[in-house]
């Protein structure tokens, strides 16, 4: 199925979960993830299953406070 991830269209397997996508793209889990413009809460990350056409934005968090 097709999704958009960080402004790039990509083809991924159906029924893939968000943690699986993050692993596939070499992200650690300490990222902020927005699906269709809404930020996921930490409790929603593990179980989230990617849907056809999802607009996904993955943001690494830049430390330095």
């Amino acid at each position: 199925m097709k999704v958009t991830c960080n402004n790039k269209t990509m083809e991924i397997e159906e029924k893939i979960t968000l943690p699986e996508l993050l692993e596939m793209l070499n992200y650690r889990k300490t990222v902020a993830v927005f699906i269709n413009g809404k930020q996921l809460l930490s409790s929603q990350l593990d179980g989230y299953r990617i849907n056809e056409g999802d607009q996904i934005k993955i943001i690494r968090i830049l430390g330095g406070g």
Partner: peptide
């Protein structure tokens, strides 16, 4: 927002379970 070079003060709190549903952003 982190997307706009935010410091990510409250936003990243959503990545910590104890905070994620306590403060909305």
């Amino acid at each position: 927002s982190l997307s706009d070079w935010g410091h990510g003060l409250v936003g990243p709190m959503c990545q910590v379970r104890q905070f994620d549903e306590t403060i909305n952003v």
